[in-house]
Amino acid sequence: MTLDESRLSHRYTERSGVRLHYVEAGEGPLVVLLHGFPELWYSWRHQIPALVEAGYRVIAPDMRGYNLSDKPRGVAAYASAELTADVAALIQASGAERAAAVVGHDWGAGVAWPFAMRYPELLERLVILNGPHPAKMLAALRTARQLRKSWYMFFFQIPKLPELLVRWNDYATFRASVKDDTRRPGAVTDEDLARYLEAWSQPGALTATINYYRAAFRPSSLRKSGKPPRVDTPVLVIWGEHDRYLDADLVAAPDPELAPNVRVVRIPDASHFVHYDRPEKVNQLLLDFLR
């Protein structure tokens, strides 16, 4: 299904002095789509039209630091509490009492999980695409296998140098991550890639996006409290098995004491960018879960 951008409304809302851009389309129960790293709202180009056609109202933001949203300075601005409060503000700005679902991929999933912990009253369902529960990710980072995949997270802790290297050769590493890592030929076209390049080139965007990783390695309220809060809402996890960034062990459902109502669907012929590789399959799973 092709995205008709003439049917999208570009809107802004503000929270604590940070202006957030989002696109909105459709009418009906609210679905919030949270993109990953290093993406933007446009990464949901296959899901937005399917959800609208099925009778849902969709909000897909540029998360803070990305594309047309503000890029506050400092690592603390990208702490989990700030990112989840942004999602709450988006739902409240929409006028809806709650979201029928919050859907997150990669870093969007890294925000969606704690959002469900902190604001359970603001969502009915949670959908995760290639994004482990925070407790599982913290445990995995103690293993050699995941450390080999996550080396860049530690590299990003160095000031300034990561920005210089990522910007080299017209963002070659970012271009490779969103295009060359996919499994379906043509999953990301040159026209698509131009949208990403435009977003990455926004002033302050590169440091802001890397600051997500820098903030994640600082003490957070979730870590200080020991075991994360329980997620009682129904959860659907969709996982592309050819993920070069996340170990296969992370696909398993979290401890039932942390999330007792989780269904996991593995897609064997898809990459970390499962919604690019198998958009029709992802859309069907998503819509079946929402019904």
Rank of each mutant, 00 (worst) to 15 (best):
M153P: 07
A96D: 13
V127E: 00
A176Y: 15
V251I: 14
Y171H: 14
P120C: 05
D269Y: 03
Y171S: 11
S201I: 12
Y196L: 09
Y212T: 10
G240A: 01
T189G: 09
R266Y: 07
E24T: 07
E191Y: 08
R98Y: 09
W200D: 14
V32P: 01
R98W: 04
P132E: 10
S150E: 05
H21G: 08
G74N: 02
A139Y: 07
R223A: 15
P159Q: 04
G95A: 08
L206I: 11
P268N: 11
V87K: 01
L123G: 02
R7K: 15
R118S: 13
P229V: 10
V31I: 11
L287F: 03
R184Y: 00
V58P: 12
P114M: 07
R195T: 14
F155G: 09
E24V: 00
L193E: 10
D86Q: 02
V237H: 04
P49T: 08
T209F: 11
Q146A: 07
T207R: 15
F174A: 14
G104Q: 02
R291N: 13
V31Q: 09
Y245E: 09
G17A: 00
L193R: 10
Y42K: 10
R45N: 13
W113L: 01
L33D: 05
P72N: 01
A109Y: 03
D249L: 10
V282M: 00
M153S: 13
R118Y: 08
E24A: 10
K179C: 12
V23Q: 03
Y196M: 08
R19L: 00
F217H: 15
V127G: 00
S80F: 10
S271L: 04
A252P: 12
H272K: 03
K71A: 02
A112D: 03
A248T: 12
L164W: 15
G95Q: 07
L250V: 04
Y66F: 15
Y245I: 07
V282F: 00
V32E: 00
A116G: 05
W41C: 07
H105M: 04
P268E: 15
Y212H: 12
M117F: 08
G186A: 04
V52N: 04
F37R: 06
I59W: 09
A93P: 02
E241C: 11
R145F: 01
F115I: 01
R244K: 12
R19I: 00
P268S: 14
I48Q: 07
S16R: 14
G186L: 06
T233I: 12
A199E: 11
F115D: 00
P61H: 04
L90T: 03
G36A: 10
A99M: 04
A112G: 07
R184A: 08
V127W: 00
F289K: 03
V282K: 00
R278V: 05
V231E: 05
A144Q: 14
L138K: 15
L20H: 10
L286N: 02
R214M: 11
L122F: 01
N169H: 15
L250T: 11
Y213M: 06
T2H: 14
Y245F: 15
H21Y: 11
